[in-house]
């Protein structure tokens, strides 16, 4: 039986794949979103910035920034999940991946449920791929701030899958 790869090799491979996916999308940098990874589980982090405010009186995060954050988390989560087997097999050559080479799923529709106003602090989100098929996928995203159980927004979206091995 083949010995498993050393833990550092495995982590490096997974983190490089995640960086390759997020590095593809300029809008992720624009919003200041990053991802924490534990195994295959990703948590999106939108670091607070004054530029994200929509209502300066309250103040509250802009609904559009929240929607964008959840959509980014859905797309990255879906891409990471669908590429996981290739990442583990070492088949995803992230070193030679140029921007735009990794085809991302396209959003068909996205529906955001605003549950509480977004506080002026960091926000977190996790995506769950409810259904992933050859052509379409359905993804649910939960967003929270201070308390994991007190969601401030949730969303469901449908995505058109990129061609295989794209």
């Amino acid at each position: 039986m083949k010995r498993p790869d050393p833990v550092t090799t495995v982590k490096k491979r997974r983190d490089a794949a995640l960086a390759a996916i997020t590095g593809q999308i300029p809008y992720i940098q624009f919003l200041g979103v990053s991802f924490d990874r534990h195994g295959d589980a990703l948590t999106g982090v939108m670091e607070y910035s004054d530029d994200l405010i929509g209502n300066p009186v309250l103040p509250a995060l802009h609904g559009g920034a929240i929607a964008a954050f959840l959509e980014i988390t859905a797309i990255v989560g879906l891409t990471f999940a669908t590429q996981w087997d290739r990442i583990e097999a070492g088949a995803l050559d992230v070193e030679s991946l140029t921007p735009g080479q990794l085809h991302l799923p396209k959003t068909i529709d996205f529906s955001v449920d605003y549950l509480r106003s977004g506080l002026p602090r960091d926000a977190y989100a996790q995506a769950r791929v409810t259904r992933s098929g050859r052509r379409y996928a359905s993804v649910h995203v939960e967003g929270w701030q201070d308390n994991r159980d007190r969601l401030f927004a949730q969303a469901t979206g449908h995505f058109l899958m990129a061609a295989p091995h794209g």
């Binding site: 593809q24 999308i25 300029p26 809008y27 940098q29 624009f30 919003l31 929509g54 802009h62 609904g63 559009g64 920034a65 929607a67 964008a68 954050f69 959509e71 980014i72 921007p99 735009g100 080479q101 085809h103 991302l104 959003t107 996205f110 955001v112």
Partner: peptide, 26 residues
Amino acid sequence: PMLIGDPSTRVIHGGAVSALMDTAGG
């Protein structure tokens, strides 16, 4: 270009369109 969601097509990310829709709605 900062708002690009897919560099292969240079198409703006859906999230930016969401922000525009939300602002216009408000």
